[in-house]
Write a protein that binds this DNA or RNA. Structure first.
Lengths: 100, 100
DNA sequence: TTTACATATCTAGAAATTTAGATATGTTTT
DNA sequence: AAAACATATCTAAATTTCTAGATATGTAAA
């Protein structure tokens, strides 16, 4: 895990917002219809609505976050759900504590 | 202090390196000639030598880091010395712990 | 087995970042 | 007061990021 790669993700307000929203899906998103929980996170459409950006941009951002290992995607039928990769997020903070 | 602003600084390897080097000036830089300590940090010339980048780029990076309040400049004669702003750096990590 | 829907990828233009050379500013030395 | 030196700022080109529209892909519904 590299500081630069994750810092790049965190250098954009929308991407940081997404990470924050995913801390508490119940508080930040409407309930899903197919499933009655947020165990695998939140579907792309809901995240897109919150960002106010285009579908492609939102998907690109999520992909960048996934690339940095900050989120984990899970497919359920037509939908892809994204949730936080908590261990990696915490490890990044610990890494900063040690390195910077 | 904003996450985005500091993350932008940390999204560049050279700038992260500078921050790391400044943790231990004795280990990473030759001794200054005018003064026999690193109490106010390290002069721009020494930092430039380590980066391998141009004088203007190094100065610009240092300025960006100062803008983000991550380093503190002190003038001694012809030289400007830069040192880490430890409380701000630690506060940023604490902020990340809470927010992201 | 088309059609509809959710998401991903491709393409591209606008904006920001990276970086260096040229020049300016401030300080010290001669 | 001029020359020398350390650092800062200006200008500009190359690269990267940001963002959306168009299109592709995968899944479910009709």
């Amino acid at each position: 895990m590299k500081i630069i790669e994750i810092s790049k993700v965190l250098s954009n307000k929308t991407r940081v917002d997404i990470l924050k929203w995913l801390k508490d899906p119940e508080a930040n998103f409407p309930p899903h219809q197919d499933i009655d929980h947020f165990d695998d996170g939140v579907c792309v459409g809901f995240i897109q609505d919150k960002t106010g950006l285009s579908q492609s941009t939102t998907s690109t951002y999520l992909h960048a976050m996934q690339n940095a290992d900050l989120v984990i995607p899970t497919r359920h039928g037509k939908w892809t759900y994204y949730k936080r990769n908590e261990p990696v997020i915490q490890a990044y903070i610990e890494l900063l504590k040690r390195e910077i």
